[in-house]
Amino acid sequence: MWRIKGFTLLESLVVLAITAFLLLGLSGGVKQTFASVEEQLFFLSFEHLYRDTQKLSALSKQEMTLILDNEKISNGIETLDLPENIKLGKDMTLHFDQTGGNSSLAKLNFQTPKKTVEYQLYIGSGQYKKTENERLHSP
């Protein structure tokens, strides 16, 4: 006859505590990774929306407007929601002329928990320069 050994209640609680600790430790890293990927996807989507608005205005030969506020970015056709951890420096409205050119030298600032992302717009061409600066944390 085989004798089956089982866990005692104390051993079961120790295993449960260790498992819970490991899961909680891993979930923090997963959340940070998810937030980082979400930020990168947002900036890629924003750049895509900016270029799409520029192309639409040139192709349709109509002026278009890109509206940026702390909740969403929209050109009237497509809307992009801002993630909770990304804040827009200030609300703005960008106008594209019939050739797709931008009519301002505006700077768009986005704040994330770890960095500031700035888009310097160039007048006429509709092009931009993107710079990322690490934010200094207060001790």
Rank of each mutant, 00 (worst) to 15 (best):
119 Y>N: 02
89 G>A: 12
118 E>M: 09
133 N>I: 10
92 M>Y: 05
41 L>T: 07
104 S>F: 07
107 K>W: 08
106 A>Q: 15
132 E>T: 14
111 Q>E: 14
113 P>T: 03
116 T>F: 08
111 Q>P: 06
88 L>Q: 04
28 G>D: 11
125 S>G: 09
51 R>I: 01
70 N>F: 09
90 K>Y: 11
124 G>A: 05
78 E>N: 12
130 K>V: 05
8 T>R: 07
26 L>C: 13
41 L>D: 10
28 G>C: 09
33 T>M: 11
6 G>K: 03
94 L>R: 03
130 K>D: 04
47 E>T: 00
77 I>Q: 14
126 G>N: 00
132 E>C: 06
78 E>H: 13
67 I>W: 11
122 Y>K: 11
20 A>Y: 05
47 E>Q: 08
63 E>N: 12
3 R>N: 13
17 A>H: 05
123 I>Q: 09
7 F>L: 15
61 K>M: 10
14 V>M: 06
99 T>L: 12
62 Q>K: 15
23 L>T: 13
62 Q>P: 04
96 F>H: 02
126 G>K: 01
122 Y>I: 10
75 N>R: 03
125 S>T: 14
104 S>Y: 05
25 G>C: 00
1 M>Q: 10
101 G>E: 05
120 Q>C: 07
29 G>R: 10
54 Q>R: 02
119 Y>I: 00
60 S>A: 09
72 K>W: 05
119 Y>H: 00
81 D>I: 12
132 E>I: 07
138 S>G: 07
41 L>H: 12
61 K>L: 12
127 Q>E: 09
84 E>A: 15
114 K>P: 04
73 I>T: 02
94 L>N: 02
72 K>D: 03
117 V>S: 01
23 L>P: 07
54 Q>T: 00
60 S>F: 04
95 H>R: 12
14 V>A: 03
35 A>T: 08
121 L>F: 03
71 E>T: 13
100 G>A: 05
87 K>G: 06
67 I>G: 00
56 L>R: 13
61 K>Y: 07
55 K>M: 10
94 L>P: 03
37 V>G: 06
67 I>E: 13
74 S>W: 02
83 P>Q: 01
92 M>H: 05
139 P>Q: 09
38 E>Q: 11
117 V>F: 02
89 G>P: 01
42 F>W: 02
21 F>C: 14
1 M>Y: 11
5 K>Q: 13
120 Q>L: 10
47 E>G: 02
40 Q>K: 15
118 E>A: 14
79 T>V: 10
17 A>Q: 05
62 Q>V: 05
123 I>L: 15
124 G>D: 03
39 E>G: 05
66 L>S: 00
125 S>K: 08
19 T>S: 15
38 E>C: 04
5 K>F: 09
123 I>V: 10
123 I>M: 12
85 N>H: 15
72 K>P: 04
65 T>F: 14
97 D>W: 02
89 G>T: 08
100 G>E: 01
102 N>Y: 04
20 A>M: 14
